[in-house]
Amino acid sequence: MTDPTRFSRRSFVHPRLVQHGAIFRNIGQVSVADTFPGRNGLATRLALIDLSPMPRLGLKGGGALDALREAGIPVPPINNMARRLSDGALIARLANTEALILPDIELIGDTIGLVEAVPIVSGCYPAPRRDSHAWFVLCGTKAVACLQKLCGVDLSPQEFADLRIAQTSVARLSTILIREDRADIPAFHLLADSASALYFWDVLCDAMDEYFGAPTGHAALCELNTRPPVKPAG
């Protein structure tokens, strides 16, 4: 177990993680809540994971998407679509002039480094998404039902398939909502105002309660990544 306060960077919900009894682990230069006592089997049912300390980056401007292509990063063909990259990272095309890049959750890949190296020129500017937005993952077979208490977008798989993006309101917060199913288990990246992170976390925990969901650690998400596809339980 490591002490996350030794790092300059802290999760936006650090007080809640401590309250829930999180056990932290260093991954590269960040410390994440890795496990919670007694909760690590929840990821298939309903779990909330905080990935806020992890790097991520936005690029904005008329030339942003071209700059990404030139850096060798395949950009989704239409807005509000995401794409999995070969190193496990995710590129989310938010608009004709904006993209968001989320790293692989084990921080092994080099996509973030590639994007950070994109030169800042007229029409292509970095956006500080690591600090402007908190990053949570809500996953599990009950994830859709839970989110439907907070969000008016139809998140059923028929209408909101894997890798779809909605930039919408969740519990009255402007949120970037990206579906990235893992082993056939529904999973949603939720990125919203970092200053409202504690409010958002508390609202999500409250909404999960009905379905016996709870905060879970980074390790559970990693484990979900390695599972073979299974038919989700009802």
């Binding site: 790092f7 300059s8 960077r9 802290r10 999760s11 936006f12 650090h14 806020s52 600090d131 402007s132």
Partner: peptide, 9 residues
């Protein structure tokens, strides 16, 4: 400073 470092600052 970056918001994630505010508490540490």
């Amino acid at each position: 400073v970056p918001a994630g470092c505010g508490a540490a600052l």
